[in-house]
Amino acid sequence: MPEKPKLAIYWAASCGGCEIAVVNLHEKILDVDAAFEFMFCPCLLDTKKKDIEALPDKSIAITLFNGAIRTAENEEMARLLRKKSQLLIALGSCACEGCILGLANLHSKQEIFKAVYLDNPTIDNPAGTIPSPASEVPEGTLTIPAFYDKVKTLGQVTAVDYFIPGCPPESHQIWNVVEAVVSGAQLPPAGSVLGAGCLSVCDECERVKEDKKIARFYRNFEITPEPRKCLLEQGLLCMGIATRDGCGAPCPQANMPCTGCYGPPEGITDQGARMIAALGSILDIGDCKGKSEEEIAARVEALLDSVPDYAGTFYKYSLPGSIIGGRVKR
């Protein structure tokens, strides 16, 4: 029997949700197993880094790499797997664009350590120890991977062949990609997004879209949305208009506004900026003719105040991969 192509799934800074999405293939996982030698997955298998290092270059057919690049180890593994893989595929929002942990880019490494290891009320740390790449102890020097200043996307540290967006990617879309690779179908040019559409979530959302004019935003708990009308038009901050489709719009169709996990639509580099530009055009502060500047400013302020969290809303998944990338320190 000829040797099956090798498949690896690696997690860097990640939550494990992408692995669950893979497992959610259910019985199709057997087809994956039939087609591939599933040989590396720290979450499920006992293969070690040294086993990978021992492989000849390009001997892994596909590596599905999930998780963002938060530490030196993440980057080291990304580079190693790049070297050993024919196809390196970014799986999920973290690898593609940095995802929720990318919001850490609004803070410095020092601020994060202070919050986690010093100010955290459930931590007892009288010595004020914070992680350091090298710590001297009586037994010698202890080393751990360095914690980077900024969260990076996989594409920011190594060349990536394809991107499968989503937090996590929908299982059927992972299958679509696996199936395409297995079938030997002609794959799109390197750098393309796979397992997703080319439009926005609105294209898949069956809610009726009419006049977009938003006088204020509501948090999800504040209103029960009308079931057939566009959520954004009802004042729920649905990111669907600025989010790539492919998920099937399960959230808006279950009365939950899209939070944008499939990232920017095709050809858009900055999802948050796009959303803000679109909202800027449809927010309604009423007729301002003859109103004083102060009153107009107050109305704008009041409307913007109904947006709970700018970065966490507009850049929930995409801050490291966006044009701004995070907070800039001077």
Binding site: D203, E210, D211, K212, K213, I282
Partner: peptide
């Protein structure tokens, strides 16, 4: 037309 997802944001503006 191939890029329009039909969200209707443009119509109001």
């Amino acid at each position: 037309p191939e890029k329009c997802a039909g969200c209707k944001v443009c119509m109001r503006v």
